[in-house]
Simulated assay, not measured.
Amino acid sequence: MFRTRPGKRRGSAVALLAAASLMLALSGCGVDPITPGDARGEAAGSDDKAGDGKAGAGTGAVDCGKVKCIALTFDAGPGKDTPHLLDVLKEKQVPATFFLLGKKHVDRHPEVVKRIADEGHEVANHTWTHRILTDLEAEEVRDELSRTQEAIEKITGRRPTLMRPPQGRTDGTVSEVSRELGLAQILWSVTAKDYSTTDSTLIRQRILDGAQGDGIILLHDIYDGTVPAVPGIIDELKRRGFTFVTVPQLLAPGQAVPGEVYRP
């Protein structure tokens, strides 16, 4: 399907649809997203460093203002395929950002959560039960996020500073609760919609069609077609001159500000 020119146009259409969906989710809610370039620009000339040197938060070797960076992120794990994914990332020396789901994931796979952190990846929050936060009252939003914060801290010794709202849906209430909990909101620029297919070739092509500098890739390490697609995604994007970074590295020397929304 994606091997012909019409297929490539269709792949581009998928990327455009994903971007349009994000715009729709944010429209009318008073949320003004910040791009990675803006985050870096605001910190230019300062002595600030992103992160605290733990779990992939370092900035040292990568200047995304000078090289073509892209952040690989995974939602809703860990799951049965996450250990293999970590093997792939270690072999290819690629850092990633994992937005972890609490119930039936963090609580069932604590050893995998610890491994993610120990191997230098960024550990982030994707709520406790994946409820749509814009449908909830403030206290319910707080419960969804704080339970996952506590579960991750218990395992890794560190509370996440980043979160991703399910379906990218946020509003003023979600932003305010996120600010209270010390969480910046991270959206994305390209997704393979891997929840709708097990075709690894299709997943790979959708990501490659939408990849861009300062981009944030959204995948899920809980679906059968996703992890097999990752080696090909990494190899091709490296061939195109991309440098893989965690989300904090993408924003450095800026820091993700709690409550704010970041999107390429």
Rank of each mutant, 00 (worst) to 15 (best):
residue 8 K to P: 01
residue 18 A to K: 01
residue 19 A to H: 06
residue 24 L to G: 13
residue 24 L to Y: 07
residue 26 L to Q: 14
residue 37 G to D: 14
residue 38 D to E: 15
residue 44 A to K: 13
residue 48 D to Q: 10
residue 53 G to I: 08
residue 55 A to H: 11
residue 55 A to W: 03
residue 57 A to N: 11
residue 62 V to W: 00
residue 69 C to V: 15
residue 71 A to F: 00
residue 74 F to D: 10
residue 76 A to E: 15
residue 79 G to E: 12
residue 82 T to R: 08
residue 83 P to N: 04
residue 86 L to M: 10
residue 87 D to C: 06
residue 88 V to T: 14
residue 90 K to S: 11
residue 114 K to I: 05
residue 114 K to E: 01
residue 115 R to N: 04
residue 116 I to P: 03
residue 118 D to R: 09
residue 121 H to Y: 02
residue 133 L to W: 15
residue 138 A to N: 08
residue 141 V to H: 12
residue 146 S to V: 15
residue 149 Q to M: 03
residue 149 Q to T: 02
residue 155 I to D: 00
residue 155 I to F: 00
residue 158 R to H: 05
residue 160 P to V: 02
residue 165 P to W: 11
residue 165 P to R: 11
residue 168 G to I: 03
residue 171 D to T: 07
residue 171 D to S: 09
residue 173 T to D: 07
residue 175 S to T: 08
residue 175 S to E: 09
residue 181 L to C: 04
residue 183 L to T: 03
residue 185 Q to P: 08
residue 198 T to C: 05
residue 200 S to K: 11
residue 201 T to R: 14
residue 201 T to F: 06
residue 201 T to V: 08
residue 202 L to N: 03
residue 202 L to P: 00
residue 203 I to H: 00
residue 204 R to A: 08
residue 209 D to A: 09
residue 221 D to Q: 04
residue 221 D to S: 07
residue 224 D to T: 11
residue 226 T to F: 00
residue 226 T to G: 07
residue 231 P to K: 05
residue 234 I to R: 10
residue 248 P to Y: 05
residue 251 L to T: 01
residue 255 Q to M: 13
residue 260 E to H: 08
residue 262 Y to C: 03
residue 262 Y to M: 04
residue 264 P to W: 10
